[in-house]
Design a protein around this nucleic acid. Structure first.
Lengths: 236, 236
DNA sequence: TGGCATAAAATTGTATGCGATCCGCGGTTC
DNA sequence: GAACCGCGGATCGCATACAATTTTATGCCA
């Protein structure tokens, strides 16, 4: 069995990821305590950890709030993601075992199949999960635990569910084409190729994201502020 | 006024940095509690935060230990540092204000002066401090808070005091020459130049570090395990 | 002596109580 | 009408008490 502190951490994190706790929301210890069913102590430890991870912001004597990001911070995040994931792709290109490349191909096939049943929410969720596994394979093959840690910290990041679904069918197809191209680059162990495909992949994602921001501007959400979401919900 | 939790954090961190708490040491909550003069609750919060930062390792029900790094993890750290600091140099090259470049030149002069009174410990400490300021100027000019955060997390890193002093006079001179070259690259706003000088700078540091490891191997210290130290103690 | 079960001590995990701080709300003053 | 002040409730920070778990000590038997 795991500790109450850890369960509290996972649960709060999940609720932020799912959007149940939206950006900027005040997280009261007593409330969380009764909601999750543990005392304030493990709740506090969970909040401290989430604070260190940047998922919540804690101000002494003023409580914790769900973190939010400005437009410029989002740009910053995408640029770091490009740096880190391109580097990972380059490293992975010479280290990736054949079995992992096969797994990537299988994942790519599964994602292609998802195109059939497209506009369903579950399908988007499934694509997100497959996509996450795909990128994790690259991260693991890169063989740098530190790189992986930093990437997770960076990418566990500001995305709204809605944004994900802004991916048009064409956008998804291009994204999946990038996946195929990455696989090919890994097969022939061409690090420069892998790196540059990954850069295209991330930059395309970024511009789809930007477009979604423009479209949703002026909605009921506070200006240019978005909630966080697990990498599992990241974009293809 | 600062909170007890924060003071505990700073104090434990300082003791690890100074080497008072060496790598692998078990940190008992009760001990820290009486040593620092607060109850276990803020101590626990401090340990959780240090755990999230990678400075200590916490295993449920088995307490916290000061983190240590293997040779391969150290290599990993240097490679990430190269990636991040080169990127920072490239970004900084187009954003660095003239006043900051002047500050860098002033710092470089101060470091040169230090060569006069060299083998003294205070001199090394002073060089470390100046060097830290020099690199911070680049980080700030890079204009990416996230990049800065990740770099701090990476570089606040495993160095032993002794290693620092492995810098020979010639090594320091080369290191300082890199600083001059960086300044020049910033003046003419050549990002590629800045980036590549920075890469040389970091890789040179890495090999001096490796050499130090070989020399100290077989000493009384546990095999290939080193403690952490603040960036302030980082190498030029 | 060495291995093993068991008990006692030490240590960490969780709950709770109390004092300190912050925040909103009237009331007052200019 | 707006700015300031003080008060009470809400919330947080910290200390302490108790429970759960791990570690160490002990005694037994092969």
């Amino acid at each position: 069995m795991s500790t109450a502190s850890h369960r509290a951490y996972e649960e709060i994190r999940r609720r932020i990821s799912s959007g149940e706790y939206h950006a900027g929301l005040r997280l009261r210890e007593e409330e969380l305590s009764s909601a999750i069913g543990v005392s304030r102590t493990p709740i506090r430890e969970a909040l401290r950890r989430l604070d260190a991870e940047g998922v919540v912001v804690n101000v002494p004597n003023r409580g914790a709030h769900v973190a939010s990001w400005s437009d410029s911070e989002l740009t910053d995040i995408f640029e770091m993601r490009a740096l880190l994931e391109c580097y990972a792709a380059k490293r992975a290109s010479t280290r990736m075992p054949a079995t992992s490349i096969d797994e990537m191909a299988t994942l790519a096939n599964s994602m292609d199949e998802c195109l059939e049943s497209l506009p369903a929410d579950e399908t988007y969720a499934r694509i997100a999960e497959l996509n996450n596994q795909f990128h994790q394979l690259i991260m693991v093959a890169a063989g740098s635990p530190l790189l992986r840690t930093l990437t997770t910290a960076t990418v566990q990041v500001p995305l709204v569910h809605r944004t994900f679904q802004r991916y048009s069918r064409r956008g998804l197809e291009r994204s999946f084409a990038h996946h195929r191209e990455l696989i090919e680059a890994f097969r022939v162990k061409d690090g420069v190729w892998a790196e540059s495909v990954m850069r295209s992949h991330i930059l395309a994602a970024r511009h789809i994201f930007d477009a979604a921001l423009v479209e949703t501007a002026g909605s009921d959400a506070p200006d240019s502020v978005y909630t966080s979401l697990d990498y599992a919900h990241g974009m293809p």
